[in-house]
Nucleic acid binder design. Structure first.
Ligand code: FES
Ligand code: FES
Lengths: 143, 143
DNA sequence: CTAAAATCGGACAAAATAGTCTTAATTTTA
DNA sequence: TAAAATTAAGACTATTTTGTCCGATTTTAG
């Protein structure tokens, strides 16, 4: 479904968001500890998310990662997914045919399309803040 | 979502099913041509499907692959998926947490679970015959 | 100014997935 | 019976994904 890279990226973003909501900046070391991910690998993913302007990084001592208040509310889960895994998921054929389309459908297209559409809706409707608040009020976990 | 191995496996099974409906037995060479897949790799996948008793193979000249009439109707798409990709998809956490459960949900569990359930329903409700008939009546394609 | 704490960037390594090749075994047909 | 057509099986290779390591850069604190 999602690559491991993307899974780590989403969990890291949620944790950075949580800390930002609490008014704190957080470090790579702490992030990878709290989301239970390999530190060096997570560093690479965070670099990507910084380049894609989903999170912000501050170098040097007392540096770390954070997300601005406006972005917490405006950034959707879909942006993380597309930044890391690309747009392929939006119109990939479930049976691997080169072009998924209603004109040349595979044998499961008509059943799969609605499910995939719901997944895309989930991605585009869910905000980073929303996910982070789930962690804050302890109705969800990160590891 | 599904591995390439699984995609090839499903497409191959659909094609074998179609030929069986038409009363014909079909060969590896023809299958990989008709589903546009690498021949040697497809051979490996078919071996697996034979072992799992989803398709039958007949060795020697005029040999090939086929599916019995009863199995065409009784075998579900889910059986192919589980045989090749395993049961993981049924309860894998979208964010990669080690155990997906409603007791310890990740930040998207409540939204994702229903979508995943629909996917599983798609798998368990769809028969091989149904998929093959879509190819037969030209309402679906295989490559 | 210097040392420590942090991210950045690129090369490298390991593991998983995808795919190939060669030889053996089986069956039909000439 | 021998050749041809076919699947079976195992070793091998290639590619992609996942992950590590190290040195450079930036910033703060003493
Ligand atoms: S053509 Fe296969 S899912 Fe659309
Ligand atoms: S816990 Fe993440 S999808 Fe269920």
């Amino acid at each position: 479904m999602l690559s491991k890279t993307c899974e780590y990226g989403i969990r890291a973003t949620i944790f950075i968001a949580l800390q930002s909501i609490l008014g704190k900046r957080t470090s790579l070391k702490y992030i990878s500890k709290e989301i239970d991910s390999p530190e060096a690998f997570t560093a690479k993913i965070l670099q990507k998310l910084v380049k894609e302007k989903i999170i912000e990084s501050i170098k040097g001592a007392n540096g770390g990662f954070e997300i601005s208040q406006p972005k917490l509310k405006s950034t959707k889960l879909s942006e993380i997914v597309y930044a890391i895994d690309g747009y392929d998921i939006r119109n990939r054929c479930m049976l691997g045919l080169p072009h998924c389309s209603p004109d040349n459908p595979c044998s499961v297209h008509n059943k799969y399309k609605p499910v995939r559409d719901e997944l895309i809706t989930l991605f585009t409707d869910t905000t980073i803040e929303e996910m982070a608040l789930g962690i804050k009020d302890k109705s969800a976990i990160l590891k």
